[in-house]
């Protein structure tokens, strides 16, 4: 097994170690954020090594196959988790992030024709690399908005139904979660906008379906962003949008890779 796959497997295990005992401890009420933070950090270091090594092996930013894209998004999600989690006091985000990242990396291993050996490009177009990287980090921001949306919906339900127990005490205030969702959607939208702007400068044209899907995702999140900004819907309804909306970029990734 190549080194990048070994590192990836180890990082997946680290995330799994992070989520299983932490989730058990969380529901029994003995949870402490450090128990989750440490395996997440170890997983991220191993994951970074895997992405770097894979990049070296294929001679470009590894984003060409579905398995590589899943790994790159998973890496971006963990990166954003470390950047976004502490300022918004949503350390619990890790509990919800770890299963998603574990599932994405697990999926990357089992899909048919995982991690193909695509030849190194003779000449790398930096705009293509930048366009793809920005788009995938934007998707990671949407993924985190989705996770934060789920957290909001849980906490909102606990408050409304008077279910004051284990998880209620661990989740952040709904007002903070609503702000975090909004900022993550705006961040993702900004990154995706830059990615699409870069696409106008490409020397190597990329296929139409890819661009169409990327624009479709941009339109969807622009709409969600406007709804949030204009406060057309309640925070609960926008949390639903952020949570369910991520299905579209997730499907578009699969479509993008299958349509070259």
């Amino acid at each position: 097994m190549p080194l990048d796959r070994q590192l990836l497997l180890l990082s997946t295990l680290a995330f799994l170690i992070g989520v299983v005992p932490a989730a058990r401890a969380l529901f029994s009420g003995h949870w402490r954020p450090s128990r989750q933070w440490i395996p997440m950090l170890i997983g991220f270091i191993l994951q970074t090594g895997a992405v770097y090594d894979r990049g070296q092996a294929v001679g470009q930013c590894p984003m060409k196959s579905l398995s590589d894209i899943l790994v790159f998004i998973a890496w971006s999600i963990v990166l954003l988790y470390f950047l976004v989690g502490p300022p918004y006091r949503v350390s619990l985000l890790g509990i919800f992030t770890a299963p998603l990242v574990t599932a994405m990396q697990g999926l990357a291993f089992v899909i048919p024709d995982a991690f193909p050996d695509y030849a190194a490009k003779s000449k790398i177009d930096p705009y293509v690399e930048l366009h793809a990287a920005l788009a995938l980090v934007a998707y990671a921001a949407f993924a985190l908005a989705c996770i934060t949306g789920v957290m909001y919906l849980l906490q909102e339900r606990f408050l409304k139904k008077h279910h004051i127990g284990g998880l209620f005490y661990q989740l952040p205030p709904i007002q903070g979660l609503a702000k975090a969702i909004q900022k993550l959607v705006y961040l993702g939208l900004l990154l995706l906008s830059f990615s699409l702007l870069v696409s106008f400068k490409l020397n190597t044209p990329i296929s139409n379906p890819k661009l169409i899907f990327a624009w479709a995702v941009w339109v969807l999140y622009a709409l969600i962003g406007v709804i949030m900004w204009r406060q057309v819907l309640s925070p609960r309804q926008t949390a639903w949008l952020a949570a369910v909306g991520f299905v579209i970029p997730f499907i578009s990734l699969w479509l993008m890779t299958t349509h070259g």
Binding site: S28, G29, H30, I164
Partner: peptide, 26 residues
């Protein structure tokens, strides 16, 4: 305190009010 939940939860009406307020707002 670290290994049990002896300090968790509210035991008086006043502290329940604080816990609820903390989970709605900053």
């Amino acid at each position: 305190r670290n290994e049990t939940t002896i300090q968790r939860g509210s035991t008086s009406v006043g502290s329940v009010a604080v816990d609820l307020a903390e989970k709605v707002h900053d």
